[in-house]
Amino acid sequence: MTSKNAFIYGAPILAGAFFLIWYVLPIGWVLWVSFWDYSPISPNNAPVGLENYREALFQDHVFWAAVKNTAYFTFGNVVLGTIMALLIANGLSRLGTLRRLAQTAYFMPTLFSIVAAAVVWEEIFQPRFGILNNGLYYLTDSLGLPPFPEIGWTTTTDWSMPTVILFGLWKFLGIRIIILLAAIEAVPRDLYEAASIDGVTKRQQFFHVTIPLIKPALWFVVIAGIINSFQVFEPMYVITDGGPLRSSVSMVMLVAETAFERQRFGYSAAISILLFGMILALTAVLFWLRGRSEER
């Protein structure tokens, strides 16, 4: 009996202690610092009340650009990423021959350290000398199609965000496919067999058998995708450096830059708290939606 208790209470104690030390206390500190004009090496740290929040919300247009870009990235990455991952996982589950090979190709980007991958993509996206624009031009030209225009992937304000999203799709698709494929494989075969005997088409099977049965995995992919996308940092940092003209700066990028480049830890903390609040609110809504969908 005691060993059972030790096993059970070990978990909340472990979780409680760990998250208290490494998250709750630090975030408490961050919250406290967000009311200060603070830098670890400044002799003139002073409390400023709500000033940091006022500055972010009502004065700093870069903050709002970052909010917009972060939302844009999240939308692109989660909506497109989930649909693509679902279709690909479904396709892979039906692939007979050489399935392992196709799987390998889709999983590969997941295993690339993001900085290394972004270095490669930065060179690929280079508008004039990179392989993407030149390859597409060569392709359209030799097929007799209208020549592919030079797209300023990383160098124009219109394309910088779509480029970062494209990179995000490439990089983050694999892990979603892993999760959804596992869920699809877990759907009992006899359900499909029963369905095809009833004359249900493959497409109808996908919508009426597969999707309802992998709902928990789908919710997970969507919720985790939103939480992670809101904290996007490296793709922008490496591919566009937030530019041109701040057109691809993300919130976490702003947090890091404000703290370590401008030495404004208080302001950085205030932006973090705002970001935390946004993710929290969004996640609460999503959990509520999920709860409702499970009731039905």
């Binding site: 280079q126 990383t154 124009t156």
Partner: peptide, 16 residues
Amino acid sequence: DNEIASTRHEALPAGQ
């Protein structure tokens, strides 16, 4: 143009 200008100091050794 913007494409070359954005490569900054790499344009010279790259012959661009």
